[in-house]
């Protein structure tokens, strides 16, 4: 995914090139936002996590290892920040245990779609680890290998988590009347 171009943009960012920054953000803001949204289920939190993800990435740009893909690095930050936000949510107890607040924020029209709500509810019932592999596989369309790199786990762990997560999702979706 644009590895060489990403590296060129990162080098320009290190030199203070605002246009390179805008290009890099433009390239990844949508996938990062989608990962955060599917992990969290609310538009406001997804936007906040997306912003934090990029901030952390650029704060630590000098620690980025160019041998690895930039998108792996930024997705990993996005997933970790989403999990941090889920933990904060749990601590605050404002929304209950991973409960989704449907129809919040600018994506209300999208999320009122029955299908999206069903899937988001099934995702919310998964553990964070299982949710992360499903989101990266199904909503970001990454390979087992990329997911393993992003989450820093063995590929066989990706497969086993995916298998368990899908099994749980199937039960959840069938419980909501979806026939699979």
């Amino acid at each position: 995914m644009h590895k060489d171009h990403d590296l060129a943009l990162i080098e320009d960012c290190k030199k203070g090139d605002q246009q390179a920054l805008a290009s890099l953000v433009r390239r990844y803001e949508r996938p990062v936002y989608n990962v955060a949204y599917r992990m969290l289920g609310t538009a406001d939190e997804a936007a906040d996590v997306s912003q934090t993800t990029f901030l952390k990435a650029f704060e630590n740009l000098n620690r980025y290892n160019p041998e690895y893909k930039f998108f792996s690095w930024i997705y990993r930050i996005a997933v970790n920040e989403s999990i941090n936000q889920l933990n904060r949510r749990k601590r605050l107890g404002e929304l209950g245990d991973d409960e989704v607040a449907p129809g919040e924020g600018p994506d209300e029209s999208v999320d009122t779609d029955k299908l999206s709500v069903q899937i988001q509810a099934a995702l919310a019932a998964l553990s964070e680890d299982h949710r992360a592999v499903v989101v990266l596989r199904h909503f970001s369309e990454h390979s087992y290998r990329d997911i393993a790199m992003m989450l820093q786990i063995p590929e066989k762990t990706v497969k086993s988590r995916l298998f368990s997560a899908r099994k749980a999702m199937k039960v959840q979706l069938e419980g909501k009347g979806v026939s699979l």
């Binding site: 803001e29 989608n34 997804a46 994506d107 299908l115």
Partner: peptide, 8 residues
């Protein structure tokens, strides 16, 4: 079937 979401 779930569409990709547009960020704000």
């Amino acid at each position: 079937q779930v569409p990709s979401l547009d960020p704000p």
